[in-house]
């Protein structure tokens, strides 16, 4: 099997971390860079099957199910207490986060 060596740059890694909303410091980014590159090397093996899968449709749903729908009726949900129970911060019935506006 031919192997192509993937070399992710630190910028790429930090960009992915930002997309993934993962707080990574420089060191962690460096470490992950190596591991991710190795994994990407491995999954690139999938390309070897390209001839066999070219004309195949993708399978997103193995059950073959279609039209799994529900009627438009209401059902009891959570009380406000239950909804807020596990929040780190709540206030007057709301969840609280640091301001998203500067």
């Amino acid at each position: 099997m031919s192997k192509s060596i993937t070399k992710l740059s630190k910028e790429e890694v930090m960009h992915v971390a930002k997309l993934a909303n993962l707080p990574l410091n420089e060191n962690e980014g460096e470490k992950l860079k190596e591991q991710l590159s190795a994994t990407i090397d491995y999954i690139n093996h999938l390309a070897e099957l390209d001839n066999k899968v070219k004309s195949l449709p993708p399978t997103y749903q193995v059950t073959g199910k279609e039209n799994a729908l529900r009627d438009d009726i209401t059902r009891p949900g959570l009380t406000r207490e239950e909804a807020l129970k596990n929040a780190r911060r709540s206030y007057n019935g709301f969840f609280v986060v640091p301001s998203v506006w500067d």
């Binding site: 992950l32 999938l46 993708p58």
Partner: peptide, 27 residues
């Protein structure tokens, strides 16, 4: 590691090469 790899394979420019291709291999 898993979140990062997953995010990478879905990101712009890589979706067809990874996720979509993988779902074809699944077929």
């Amino acid at each position: 590691r898993r979140i990062m790899l997953g995010t990478y394979t879905l990101s712009a420019g890589y979706y067809d090469a990874y996720y979509k291709r993988a779902q074809k291999v699944r077929t």
